[in-house]
């Protein structure tokens, strides 16, 4: 089976003053058709940057892809012209952004923004586009959809705005949806509504999803596979059950143990000591070594290679060599 999306050895750098600093370094993962893949990891580890790269939306001038390929249905997206990317974005791959307010334009109505998307990519007449947009709003559970077409983003609640974003992202029935922290800004009861909606939509539309989140509960609930990132690299990936039941990388293990549980009582939480190294002074060996309880001398010197644990469960750690 070929994957819908394959990211191979992706390297991305950001400019800081005069030089480019590597921020994503050799990230590889894939997304199969109809699959939900979760990406988790510490703030700043490169989750959003990776997804912007897939969308072809890395900020020009201050960032660049140094190496690697992004294969979508076999076609390499790295190096596509903006013209070519425009045909893919929204239509084949679309994204729900981390900050819903910045991605909806405050001066246009919800209807304008939804219809623009449809009109840009299809030859539908305006009337048809309006009807389609209303249908999309209804599909994401917005009551009074026709009225809301005339509302501005600030007139809606956070949960409603997120629904609009989802409607917009799905209005051209893309094959891949990237959701960057789609529920982080929302309250739990609204989050529950949105997660339910995303599950239902995924089934109805056969969409594959990349779900970026820091909430391990959300990952356990909606993802089939999980990619764990740390300081610009993938440290472990595999089936969601393997990652939660049989985590191997000390960072993954620490992360899972740091979460307070609703069902168990613990006197003290496990906590990973120290903090993430800064991009401009990344250590030579394993980037987690200074925080790791199991680090051996070689961990501080050489980068750990990727090791297969079982099936597609892999990890990059010297303990398993």
């Amino acid at each position: 089976m070929t994957a819908l999306l394959e990211v191979n050895n992706l390297h991305i750098a950001f400019r800081k003053e005069k030089s480019f600093i590597p921020t994503v370094e050799g990230v590889s993962f894939h997304v199969n058709s109809r699959e939900t893949v979760g990406i988790v990891g510490e703030s700043g580890c490169g989750k959003s940057v990776t997804s912007l790269a897939i969308m072809g939306l890395l900020p020009r001038g201050i960032s660049r892809i140094d190496y690697g390929e992004i294969l979508f249905e076999g076609q390499n997206l790295v190096g596509l012209s903006s013209e070519e990317y425009r045909k893919i974005r929204g239509r084949e791959i679309s994204m729900i952004f981390q900050e819903p307010m910045t991605s909806l334009n405050p001066v246009f109505t919800i209807g304008d923004q939804l219809m623009e998307m449809v009109l840009e990519h299809t030859a539908q007449p305006k009337k048809q586009a309006f009807k389609h947009s209303v249908e999309m709003l209804e599909k994401v559970g917005i009551p009074r959809a026709e009225e809301i077409m005339h509302d501005y983003p600030h007139q809606l609640s956070g949960g409603m705005r997120q629904r609009v974003m989802i409607a917009m992202a799905l209005s051209l029935n893309p094959k891949l949806l990237i959701a960057d922290e789609p529920t982080t800004a929302l309250d739990v009861t609204i989050q529950a509504q949105i997660l339910e909606l995303m599950q239902q939509i995924k089934n109805d539309f056969d969409t594959s999803v990349i779900m970026i989140t820091h909430d391990l509960g959300v990952v356990a609930e909606v993802c089939d596979r999980v990619v764990v990132m740390y300081a610009g690299k993938v440290v472990e990936q595999g089936d969601v059950k393997a990652i939660f039941k049989n985590p191997r990388h000390p960072y993954t293990i620490g992360l899972l143990q740091s979460v307070p549980s609703l069902t168990e009582e613990r006197d003290q939480l496990y906590s990973i000591r120290g903090s993430v190294p800064l991009p401009e002074n990344m250590p030579a060996g394993c980037r987690f070594a200074s925080r790791c309880d199991h680090a051996k001398p070689e961990c501080f010197e050489h980068e750990p290679p990727e090791v297969q644990i079982e099936g597609d469960h892999t990890t990059s750690c010297w303990l398993y060599r």
């Binding site: 739990v188 009861t189 529950a192 509504q193 356990a220 609930e221 969601v240 059950k241 939660f244 979460v259």
Partner: peptide
């Protein structure tokens, strides 16, 4: 009931408001 539980083997009955 709305809190997602970090365990893929637990599927809970959820009250969605």
């Amino acid at each position: 009931s709305a809190v997602p539980v970090p365990d893929p083997e637990i599927k809970r009955e959820r009250i969605v408001l």
